[in-house]
């Protein structure tokens, strides 16, 4: 199962037939495993990695470090879940170290992001402080190096 998940993680386009032959399983078995993983939430979704810098679309990403006072019995869960509800928010992680939650958000402009931080995040109950870092350039994401050349430079040696 782990091999199938790893292969799918690197290339969601692989068909059950291709996965089956690579993993010494039948196509039916592979379909069943994938269906189970989708069902139980191991496979959370399928998305496409896009380098938006290659398009004209205007966007800004920022990482926001949040210090949060945990709530009785709920810890950080409640506030993290609330933050997740905002469509601008791309990811939310509970962190060890100097701050508590790391939030990655996307907006069209710097102003849109600062508005979001000041008006929506900073004002939430339990948020002690925020620290916003704008992302200037993406070099590698989800294991994929951006702008790496596909050119095959290997010499034709038998």
């Amino acid at each position: 199962m782990e091999t199938i998940l790893k292969l799918l993680e690197s290339n969601a386009h692989l068909t059950p037939a291709q996965l089956a032959v690579m993993c010494d399983k039948s196509e039916e078995e592979v379909k069943k495993i994938i269906a189970e993983c989708e069902e139980n939430g191991t496979i959370v979704g399928y998305k496409t990695l896009i380098d938006w810098d290659k398009t004209d679309r205007a966007y800004v990403n920022a990482m926001i470090e949040l210090k949060v006072s945990p709530q009785k019995d709920l810890g950080f869960d409640r506030i993290a879940e609330t933050i997740c509800l905002h469509p601008e928010v791309q990811s939310v992680h509970l962190m060890s170290g100097g701050y508590d939650l790391l939030v990655v958000i996307e907006g069209k402009t710097l102003k849109e992001i600062s508005d979001f931080v000041f008006n929506r995040l900073a004002t939430m109950d339990g948020i002690v402080s925020t620290s916003t870092h704008f992302i200037l350039k993406k070099y590698k994401d989800k294991g994929v190096i951006y702008n790496s050349s596909d050119e095959d430079k290997r010499g034709n040696i038998l």
Partner: peptide, 16 residues
């Protein structure tokens, strides 16, 4: 092979 553009080569004898 060198003369043709856009070839999918499966010819080399070295790791990718």
């Amino acid at each position: 092979l060198d003369e043709i553009k856009g070839v999918i080569a499966l010819t080399v004898g070295q790791p990718d």
